[in-house]
Design a binder for these strands. Structure first.
Length: 427
RNA sequence: GGGGAGGUGCCAGAGUGGUUAAAUGGGGCGGACUGUAAAUCCGCUGCUUCGCGGCUACGCAGGUUCGAAUCCUGUCCUCCCCA
């Protein structure tokens, strides 16, 4: 049994833990769990740290349990949230659960080995419980004073908190108790924001059985500027390739700052301490190479998506941001071209429109329906400022005749600024 | 119900009859530098025009005037104070 806690510690993945946890893990193969409320049809990278906890737990020889909180998801966790949340209906939750459980297979071994992971839904024991039974089984053992004293709830007492959300920690606490008694689960893990909920669970177990159960939290990952980790301007970074493309996913990791990358490489990759040490050294010697970011992006893109998705994302990045020249894009066949520019807006124009063009400005404004530039004036300004390239060649004259050759005889690669690409398809 | 303040461009905010497409700051966008970063510097930031110009725009609707964001009338909305 490898030392799970020590492994987490050097990775900086332990925020707090109840006493005695090391002794318990050393004593026997232990079953531990993490709960996810299926509030969306996909996990996002904010959930990933908790998944990594389970991953390390399993790799250390212990048995992970995942709770997809069909019941808790119906209530809504108020921890650290500023406002009451929207209630989700059961069908929505069920659909989300199905999607999420598939994603979990990519991380954990759900085989029937001794330490194979198990997936449970707390709806199974809450559905038929009844309110009175719950009050007697769970509510009787925990005082309101205890529940209100949690930091995670305190701030909401000022602005308002429904009884429903207030009761959330009891649900989660009871989950732990149920798992303890029915599945021999002795440890619950989660993000640092979950500490209040986890200790409610250990408290219920202690009061009802007199035995100790354990809790461990991992620090919430914060960005240097204080904004929330895992969000881009476009919103959450999801694991689902439809909601966040593998390319965008790869880019997210690649664009992490150096300080973040040092932390992220320990939390999100499975590389060992020595390898990470070397990586950080290499990185610091030549930070512009972004060794760390690339290592993280590679490992995660492969694990969450696939080897192929990683290669495509890396190639796309090279073409889009490297010093690709016209020669480089000419070497791409149509398949490559479409893959690399899969996430780029495509604008179709007709053969007639293409033939009748007299002016580059018209092409990037009116003919393309204002998608690239919403007015001719804007197009002209950007071109005069040197901000437009076609097929990787910078355009300098707004009135240039658009006598470009078409890539693969039908595509035109239009680039605004450094990052914004459009693909015009002539059909 | 009474009294007061105010509604200006993506946002904040100046302007109180012509020189105002509207100061200034922020944001956004382009360029340079760079690591697809940060900081910095430069440029652009209503539509149209190669430009002159034309058009649209200061809550909304009218009016006064050669000329209105600016004055008048009505109207809608917001904020503050009192009841």
């Amino acid at each position: 049994m490898q030392d799970f806690v020590a492994n987490l510690r050097w990775r900086g993945m332990v925020c707090s833990a109840t006493p005695g946890i090391e002794a318990q893990l050393e004593k026997e193969r232990t079953t531990g769990y993490v709960g996810f409320d299926p509030t969306a049809p996909s996990l996002h990278i904010g959930n990933l740290a908790a998944i990594m906890l389970l991953k390390h737990f399993q790799l250390a020889g212990h048995k992970p349990v995942v709770i997809l909180g069909g019941a808790t998801g119906m209530v809504g966790d108020p921890s650290w949230k500023t406002a009451e949340r929207r209630l989700l209906c059961e069908e929505e939750l069920h659909y989300n659960q199905t999607c999420i459980s598939k994603q979990l297979q990519q991380f954990l071994d759900f085989s029937d080995r001794k330490h194979g992971a198990v997936l449970l839904n707390n709806m199974d024991w809450f559905r038929d419980m009844g309110f009175l039974k719950f009050l007697r089984e769970a509510g009787k053992h925990i005082s309101v004073n205890y529940m209100m004293a949690k930091d995670s709830v305190k701030r909401r007492l000022e602005t308002g908190l429904s009884f429903t959300e207030f009761a959330y920690q009891l649900l989660q606490g009871y989950d732990f108790y149920y798992l303890y008694t029915h599945h021999n689960v002795k440890l619950q893990m989660g993000g640092a924001d979950q500490w209040g909920n986890l200790t409610t669970g250990t408290e219920i177990i202690r009061r009802k059985t007199g035995n100790a159960a354990f809790a461990l939290t991992t620090p919430l990952i914060t960005k240097a500027d204080g904004s929330k980790f895992g969000k881009t301007e476009q919103g959450n970074v999801w694991l689902d390739p439809v909601m966040t493309s593998p390319y965008a996913f790869y880019q997210f990791w690649l664009n992490c700052s150096d300080e973040e990358a040092c932390k992220l490489v320990m939390v999100f990759t499975l590389l060992d301490q020595a390898t990470i040490g070397t990586l950080i050294q290499t990185h610091n010697a030549a930070p512009h190479q972004r060794t760390l970011q690339k290592a993280i992006a590679k490992e995660l893109t492969i694990r969450v998506h696939s080897e192929q998705a990683y290669r495509q994302a890396a190639q796309a990045a090279e073409i889009l941001f490297g010093n690709a020249t016209q020669g480089d894009i000419l070497t791409l066949d149509e398949q490559d071209l479409l893959t690399i520019f899969a996430n780029v807006p495509k604008i179709t124009i007709s053969q007639e429109q293409w033939r009748d063009l007299t002016d580059i400005t018209d092409l990037v404004s009116s003919v393309t329906q204002g998608i690239i530039f919403k007015s001719k004036g804007e197009a002209r300004r950007i071109i005069q400022g040197g901000g437009l390239s076609i097929n990787k060649i910078r355009i300098t004259d707004p009135h240039q005749k658009p006598d470009f050759f078409l890539l693969q005889e039908k595509y035109l690669l239009i680039q605004q600024g450094k990052k914004q690409y459009y693909l015009v398809v002539v059909q």
